[in-house]
């Protein structure tokens, strides 16, 4: 089987069971954007540096530009188009967490993952842990201050 040869995959994308046919090493990012039209996931660098393409795979944040699509077989993928982001989105709108908006979907996905992780650990939602959690999501507009404010505010509205 060549690396070019398409394979059949089953996965759940934003809660919907999907059957995909794709070359196994295609980037999850490209399959989401080009095949499924889920263009909310952005590409900033193509090498796992900027975090603009962050999605959740089985609830874990990953850079979708570094995930070959064959590795999400039997997995659940959540993108910014999925549900469960409303509280974080509202916080980013209210507190000026989005400027140009290109890093915003990845930033929001990562913020949700951080909140869920803190909740799972029963750990405090504090500035320090927000900084660490969002360190792989680059933003050139905001200086991060209002993003961190938004993330902390989202903690207050999220159950």
């Amino acid at each position: 089987m060549s690396v070019q040869e398409p394979v059949d995959l089953r996965c759940t994308i934003n809660g919907v069971a999907r059957e995909l046919r794709a070359a196994p090493l295609r980037r999850l990012l490209d399959v989401l954007r080009d095949d499924l039209g889920l263009t909310g996931t952005k590409e900033g660098c193509g090498e796992g540096e900027c975090g603009a393409c962050t999605v959740l795979v089985n609830g874990e944040p990953v850079n979708s530009c570094l995930v070959p699509v064959c590795q999400v077989d039997a997995c659940s993928v959540t993108t910014i188009e999925g549900s469960g982001f409303e509280g974080v989105q509202a916080a980013f709108l209210e507190h000026g967490g989005a400027q140009c908006g290109i890093c915003t979907p990845g930033m929001i996905v990562m913020t949700r993952a951080w909140l869920e992780e803190r909740s799972r650990l029963g750990a405090a939602v504090d500035l320090e842990s927000a900084r660490k959690a969002l360190a792989g999501n680059l933003c050139r507009c905001t200086g991060y201050a209002k993003i961190l404010t938004s993330a902390l505010a989202a903690a207050a509205v999220k159950p």
Binding site: S2, V3, P24, L25, R27, G46, E47, G48, C65, L66, V67, P68, C70, Q71, D73
Partner: peptide, 24 residues
């Protein structure tokens, strides 16, 4: 996990014919 190899593929430094995906 792809964090090195996928960058190599993308930047065209590697054009592998044979890949074993061990992630599973």
């Amino acid at each position: 996990g792809g964090t090195d190899l996928m960058v190599e593929f993308e930047t065209g430094r590697t054009h592998p014919d044979v890949v074993f995906d061990l992630w599973g």
